[in-house]
Amino acid sequence: MFGLKEYRVAQSLDQADQLLHEHKNNVILGGLLWMRMGRKNYHTGIDLSQLGLDRILETEEAIEIGCMTRLRQIETSGILDACFGRVLADAVSHIVGVQFRNAATMGGSVFSRFSFSDVVTALLALETHVHLYRGGILPLETFLESSPQRDILVKLSLKKKAWKTSYQSHRMTATDFPVLAAAISCCEDRWRISLGARPSRAKLATKAAALLPKKPDAAQIAAACDQVVEEMSFGGNQRGTREYREILAKVLVKRGVEAVCR
């Protein structure tokens, strides 16, 4: 367990920001599921729970997800279902258990840039923007590639479009981290293929996506799958070798594309 000298409930984002930069050992508290495992000694922990950031809101053009929104809300949200299908729900529903998802936050999940992240894999297949308090609004892709800065992830916004989506993952056990995760989406005739837990951080396979027409046939899907392995790097860790992940990548992408077409 980590150590904490002070606990502060932020009354405004301004104040949270101020607190965060007051001391280099101050830290934003998300759902604590991950932080709990650390042993670091922090100075002040900053609680964002009183800022109304635990909501999923629909605007004209986008869906906004506050950073303190819990994964369980993502799983059960009618708004998300209506706009994006089950892709987000399917991405989070394997994560540990209901009690866990009642606590884990979207802010903590995205800000941590976990390489195994189902959440990030799914968000990447949609057009997601990250709203940082200091860093401004940037596409998730850019955020993931940027080096970690001390900042507050305020919310995420996802473009409302005529999405068709599918989420696929392979896990050694039902509630384990994914060995490989794939989120596939199609809007009009533009595909997005996102692969996570390769085991490195989720990325879009843009060239492979470009190979797919609106209604791809089996050969076109196969070509896109080959291209995925061509353009992305895969690696090995405790949960699987590089070779196995490359095989899985083709299978999951194929299944995802087929599911979207259905």
Partner: peptide, 15 residues
């Protein structure tokens, strides 16, 4: 009323 993991919450957070 919501099930949560008490090993992953701070007592400070239940004010």
């Amino acid at each position: 009323g919501t099930p949560r993991l008490s090993c992953a919450m701070l007592a400070a957070g239940i004010q």
